[in-house]
Design a protein around this nucleic acid. Structure first.
Lengths: 386, 386
DNA sequence: CTTGATTCTTCCGCGACGAAAGTAAGTGAC
DNA sequence: GTCACTTACTTTCGTCGCGGAAGAATCAAG
């Protein structure tokens, strides 16, 4: 653990649940909160008082639209002061560091990226430090930093193993804390994105929720009971052994016909190049497929069927309330969404509840935002794993 | 809900957690309970006192083997009085009713089966009533009845739809309560087996646990956070659309190459008969396969690969701590277990935690026992869904 | 202006818990 | 034996968090 970051104030369990509910549920009156949290009205007066005094919550002047004219004393909605603290989120890639500043609500208010010239831990820490310095100038009320890294992260502090950075057991949180003086949370990038979507995104308030990311690789995140389930092979080549079609294409990465070989961007590009002799970007391939060019269309069609199979299997076994497709490689949903949907339908029981599927193309700033959410969770609300 | 069954006594939440912990965890001292439930020693004195006075718990004279010689005052283990109440569990099949009497610990102390000559609800209720009368003679302290039925069960009381019985919206719990005067819990049979395994069997104390049953059909049970996840297509032909091999066999039931067509007993028998022209029992087929007879061996081999695929997919996506294979059709694990294991390994990430797989051949009395466990949960501990 | 509805606050009492002190029941050293 | 020590359990007491009831605030409707 990081050296117990400066939480806003020691929140009691009751106060914390109120704070989180308002943070995630928009402005809410005390009565509404009492209903949602199954507490009495009196308890809500008690719990909200210190939160308001500390400046975390404020009474807002009634929602703009008095939709329904109600009798009785009007309710007094409470809202978090989103700007009262800022958070930095970093996503470290092979050659870039993407940075964002967010509010307490995880709205991005600034972006700042820097190329990475060296992958030496000391150098990276220095880049992060300089970026933090620059961002601090414009955003003084910084409460903490979250960092997302591809690879295995331990205790939300130490990068245990990151192949693309060539790191082993780098105590990144400690180093950045020493450089910046701010509390730091480090997490695997997929895990951070999953947490962010669970708190502020597609998975808000859900009990069973799955995130599937498609990009340079495949990422899988399982959220049960509002908590992400960690697993051993996390972010060390996930999906390489999910065989979808034993006769599928053979690609440089991943087993033959695996999710990785059928769906990731590098392997789709590889397949098209192998068939046509020309290297094209992922976007170009999607356009060509949409235009009916045979080979790209076939590769994309096959990828769509693979994705549908994957989603159907997940839906059948995990029974999630929602599946989020994220990452840079979900563009195929736009042009082959029907194939995906048809495949899913064919592999599900007719009586089964339809899969709620959401697609969200994410860029690197979304990954950085995910890391910032980790900081919000841990530093402000002290909800390390709640 | 059943008309609020006579719970032993109104248990407070704290008392209930103590009672369940002792019931599931064998004899436990107060200190050990305090550790497990994260309570103070003083609280345990308070919580156990009424439980002992009511006769649910007793102090037992120290575990037989004083394994380690410890200093200090010896601990005073507490245990449930397993015989203080009895429970009946029924499993209703097409042509039989299987009945068991269990202790509070769900140990079977008596069995009694009766053929079913009619499937009229009134007739079935009468058979259940007569069986209960007979069992009451030998086991006077009956606290309640649990009934497991294949089909859709609503509110643990009403059989919403049961194709093999030809029932629709039969308020079975109410009817049997009227006939016997005992509180009754009705549940889908797979669900009951899953609950039983979660509480007293392979899934004891686990957070993520999967039960896969193979018999006349395929059953799937998902337990997350100690609670079974219900789903829409439950027991209405589950696994018919889990396509494992698109080029697999075509069978009377289930889509081509589905889990149902590859694994269920009727379809394995069908495949062997179609290939050899002779109808054989499942046991005979297994023996022939073990002896090297080509066609049965091939069918069983294919089934084993299908099972391995299924288990690997479940393990990959659900990340369970354990998977239990149950039912009458898991005999193939004995002679083709290696194929299953090899298939699982091939479809999992090398770094992934090995799948903990347990096999348990269950007969109809195990299904009946599952129903009795439901009665224990609901009637004694009032843990309807805890 | 009164009545009623609805939200929020204040106040009180209850119940569950933990901390600390006390009691019980053993072991080991001499 | 007895004295110190260890561990298990009990008792007591203060605290905390909650719900319930009564009251205050603030609106609409008649």
């Amino acid at each position: 653990m990081t050296p117990v970051a400066a939480s806003w104030l020691p929140l009691s369990p009751g106060e914390r649940s109120v704070a989180i509910e308002v943070l995630l549920g928009g402005p809410l009156s005390r009565t509404e909160l009492a209903r949602r949290l199954d507490l009495s009205a009196g308890s809500l007066t008690r719990l909200t008082k210190p939160l308001i005094e500390s400046g975390l919550l404020v009474e807002v002047p009634e929602a703009g639209a008095p939709a329904e004219v109600r009798q009785g004393r009007p309710s007094q909605p409470l809202d978090v002061v989103a700007e009262s603290r800022s958070f930095i989120g970093f996503k470290i890639t092979e050659d870039m560091v993407y940075g964002v500043v967010t509010t307490l609500r995880s709205e991005i208010v600034a972006r700042y990226d820097r190329p990475l010239t060296s992958r030496e831990p000391a150098e990276v820490v220095e880049v992060l430090g300089e970026m933090t310095d620059a961002l601090t100038a414009d955003h003084p009320r910084l409460a903490g930093i979250g960092i997302g890294v591809g690879g295995l992260v331990e205790d939300r502090a130490v990068v245990g193993e990151s192949p693309f950075l060539g790191w082993r057991d780098v105590p990144l949180a400690e180093l950045v804390e020493g450089r910046t003086g701010l509390p730091v949370v480090v997490e695997n990038d997929v895990a951070a994105l999953v947490e962010a979507e669970t708190w502020f995104g597609a998975g808000r308030g859900l009990d069973r929720f799955v995130v599937l990311t498609i990009g340079a690789g495949i990422g899988y995140g399982l959220v049960l009971g509002g908590k992400r389930v960690p697993y051993a092979e996390e972010d060390r080549g996930f999906g390489r052994h999910w065989i979808i079609d034993p006769n599928g294409p053979l690609t440089p990465d991943g087993a033959r016909g695996s999710a990785v070989s059928l769906l990731t961007i590098p392997n789709i590009r590889y397949q098209v190049q192998a068939a046509t002799g020309r290297d094209r970007t992922y976007e170009e391939i999607l356009e060509l497929a949409a235009a009916g060019e045979p080979m790209p269309a076939r590769v994309i069609e096959e990828a769509a069927r693979a994705l549908g199979t994957l989603v159907a299997q997940i839906a059948n076994f995990v029974l999630p309330q929602k599946i989020l497709l994220a990452g840079e490689g979900v563009g195929l949903m736009d042009i082959a969404g029907k194939t995906v949907a048809d495949t899913i339908r064919a592999l599900r029981h007719p009586l089964a509840a339809p899969v709620e599927l959401e697609t969200k193309v994410s860029d690197f700033h979304d990954w950085a935002r995910g890391a910032a959410v980790l900081a919000i969770q841990v530093l402000v609300l002290g909800a390390a794993d709640a």
